[in-house]
Computed example of a mutant assay.
Amino acid sequence: MRFMVIVKANQDTEAGKMPTTEMLAAMGKFNEEMAKAGVIEAGEGLHPTVKGARIRYSPADASVTRGPFNLSRDLIAGFWMIKTSSLDEAIAWMKRAPFEPGSEIEIRQVFSVEDFGEAFTPELREQDDRTRAHAAKK
């Protein structure tokens, strides 16, 4: 199973405050442990929302709002893509992440092709395969 681990933003991340050398070293060690175990697929921090935008879609068009955005529980400061055998295993790994007290993450399972059932036709499956092959070449 694949999971996206969403790291929630806080005042420091939204202010652009960078982690300390010690925090970077601890996170690097944690990421290395996940890599050695074959768990991590990707993981990155995100710039503050002042450098981002949101797009809201309507029947007529798509409207753009540029950041910064008000600090709320829905802002994201970073993410991991991990692969584990279960949600419980993902939770066990993430409980070991070296975060400061008060930090918050969210763990969400990523849909697999099989989850879409018959709606995911053979033609759509072929298209998905081509897209993934193309992206892997980059």
Rank of each mutant, 00 (worst) to 15 (best):
G28V: 07
A35Q: 08
A35W: 05
G38D: 01
G38V: 01
V39Q: 03
E41V: 13
E41F: 07
A42C: 01
E44L: 11
E44H: 11
H47G: 00
T49E: 05
V50Q: 10
G52T: 09
A53W: 06
A53G: 06
A53N: 07
R54G: 01
I55Y: 03
D61M: 03
A62N: 12
S63W: 00
V64R: 14
R66V: 08
G67N: 05
P68V: 08
P68Y: 03
P68H: 03
F69V: 03
N70V: 14
S72W: 04
D74W: 07
L75V: 06
A77G: 12
G78I: 08
W80T: 04
K83P: 00
L87M: 15
D88E: 15
D88T: 03
E89G: 02
A92S: 15
A92D: 14
M94R: 02
K95C: 10
P101D: 13
G102M: 08
S103P: 04
E104N: 09
I105F: 12
I105G: 02
E106N: 09
I107L: 08
I107D: 11
R108Q: 03
E114I: 04
D115C: 08
F116E: 02
G117T: 06
G117S: 09
A119D: 10
E123Y: 03
R125M: 09
D129S: 11
R130L: 13
R132V: 12
